Simulated scan of single mutants.
Amino acid sequence: MSKATPATRALAAAGVAFTVHTYDYDPDAESIGLQAASALGEDPARVLKTLMALVDGKPVCVVVPSDQEVSMKKLAAAAGGKAAQMMKPPEAERVTGFKVGGISPFGQRKPVWTVIEQSALTHDRVYINGGQRGLQVRLKPDDARGVLKAVVADVIA
């Protein structure tokens, strides 16, 4: 597994301190985020999942704890829109340049509006997908917010 991905290169170029962590990715897991947390031996609240949605038809990246679900209503409001829906996997892969299960908010093909669940910022360090299945980066949540120019909001159901 290569530890150099568009995501890790984007973090390095931004001067963000992070560490890389690998785990055995299970493509059949019911929840990829929860499986990652379990494999890493971490609290699911500190292992964040990256989801792609459409808000009023425009791509939005949303980063939430792996044990939580996104409220589409709250996400639409946080992104300044009226309606939100999850992006279909093939579209998410096309927009981001990453495979589902390895989608990172960092180093996507084109930067998109990003929302981070506010509870994620209560941790000293969090894990976020590093741009490859079975690869996570560990960093300060405020560094993630800064490099992504993300909006911080309550978006969990």
Rank of each mutant, 00 (worst) to 15 (best):
A53Y: 10
A37P: 00
M52V: 11
D67T: 02
L51Y: 04
A10I: 02
Q132P: 05
E91V: 08
D56N: 08
V64W: 07
V152E: 03
T22C: 14
V155A: 05
A78M: 06
V55W: 00
E42S: 02
A10L: 01
K149V: 13
L75W: 03
V55Q: 09
K74C: 08
V70C: 15
G57A: 13
A13C: 06
T96A: 04
A92H: 03
S2E: 15
A92S: 08
S38C: 04
P65L: 06
G130F: 03
K88Y: 14
G102K: 06
D143K: 02
P6L: 07
D56A: 07
G80K: 00
D143H: 11
A120K: 01
K58Y: 06
A45R: 12
V16A: 07
V95I: 11
V95D: 06
I103W: 04
M72L: 15
T122P: 10
K58Q: 13
G15P: 00
S66L: 07
V100T: 09
K82V: 12
Q85H: 10
R109M: 14
A36K: 02
M72H: 11
Y23W: 10
I128H: 06
P44A: 01
L135M: 10
D143Q: 09
L148W: 03
T19Q: 13
L139Q: 04
I116F: 07
V64H: 02
S38D: 12
V20A: 11
D43L: 06
A12R: 09
T8C: 11
V147H: 07
E93R: 08
K82I: 08
A77M: 08
Q136A: 08
R125V: 13
G146I: 11
R138E: 12
E69N: 12
Q108N: 08
Q85T: 11
S38E: 13
P65K: 01
G131D: 08
A53Q: 02
H123R: 11
V20Y: 00
G101C: 06
P111I: 04
G41Q: 04
G97T: 01
V112C: 11
T114C: 08
A79M: 03
T19A: 13
A45D: 15
M52D: 04
A4L: 15
P105Y: 05
L40P: 10
H21R: 07
G57Q: 14
M87V: 06
A144F: 07
A79R: 05
G107W: 02
I128C: 09
L11M: 00
A78F: 09
A45E: 13
K110N: 15
P65Q: 02
D143Y: 05
K110M: 15
R133Q: 12
A83N: 15
T50E: 13
L54E: 12
V95Y: 05
D124P: 14
A120S: 08
V147G: 10
H21Y: 02
L11T: 03
R138P: 14
P44S: 04
Q108V: 13
V95C: 00
D143G: 05
P65A: 09
K74P: 00
W113M: 15
